[in-house]
Amino acid sequence: MTEYKLVVVGAGGVGKSALTIQLIQNHFVDEYDPTIEDSYRKQVVIDGETCLLDILDTAGQEEYSAMRDQYMRTGEGFLCVFAINNTKSFEDIHHYREQIKRVKDSEDVPMVLVGNKCDLPSRTVDTKQAQDLARSYGIPFIETSAKTRQGVDDAFYTLVREIRKHKEKMSKDGKKKKKKSKTKCVIM
Score class of each variant (00 low, 15 high):
V112G: 00
V114L: 10
S122L: 08
K104L: 14
Y71E: 15
L113R: 00
R68G: 15
F82M: 12
M72P: 08
G75Y: 08
A66Y: 05
F90I: 08
N86R: 04
I84K: 11
F90W: 13
S106W: 11
L79K: 00
M111F: 11
K104Y: 12
V81N: 05
E76A: 08
F82W: 09
G115K: 02
M111A: 01
V103A: 05
D108G: 07
Q70G: 02
Y64H: 09
V112E: 00
F82H: 09
K104V: 11
G75H: 04
E76I: 12
G115E: 05
S65I: 08
G115L: 10
Y71R: 01
F82S: 11
N116Q: 14
A83Q: 14
I84G: 15
V125C: 11
V112W: 01
G115Y: 06
I100L: 13
P110Y: 01
S106R: 07
D119C: 06
S106L: 12
C80D: 02
E63S: 05
H95R: 12
D126M: 07
P121L: 09
S122G: 13
P121E: 13
Y64G: 14
K88C: 09
T87G: 08
V109R: 03
K88G: 10
D119E: 08
M67W: 11
Y71P: 11
S122Y: 08
V109I: 12
E76P: 01
D105K: 07
V103G: 05
V125P: 09
D108E: 10
M67H: 01
K101I: 03
S122V: 09
E63V: 05
C80E: 02
D108R: 06
G77C: 12
G115H: 04
L113K: 00
F82V: 05
R123S: 13
P121A: 12
M72W: 06
A66G: 09
K101M: 12
C80Q: 03
L113G: 01
Y71D: 15
F78C: 02
C80R: 01
E76M: 09
D119S: 05
C118H: 08
E63H: 06
D108L: 05
E76W: 10
V81K: 01
D69G: 03
L79S: 00
G77Q: 01
F78W: 03
R123Y: 09
E76G: 03
H95G: 07
M111D: 00
R68I: 13
P110W: 00
D126P: 06
S106P: 04
R123G: 13
C118E: 11
C80W: 09
Y71H: 15
V112A: 03
M67Q: 00
V125S: 10
R68P: 07
R73Y: 07
T74P: 12
V109Q: 03
S65P: 14
F78H: 04
M67C: 04
N116K: 02
N116I: 12
S65Q: 07
P110A: 03
L120M: 09
D126L: 07
S106G: 12
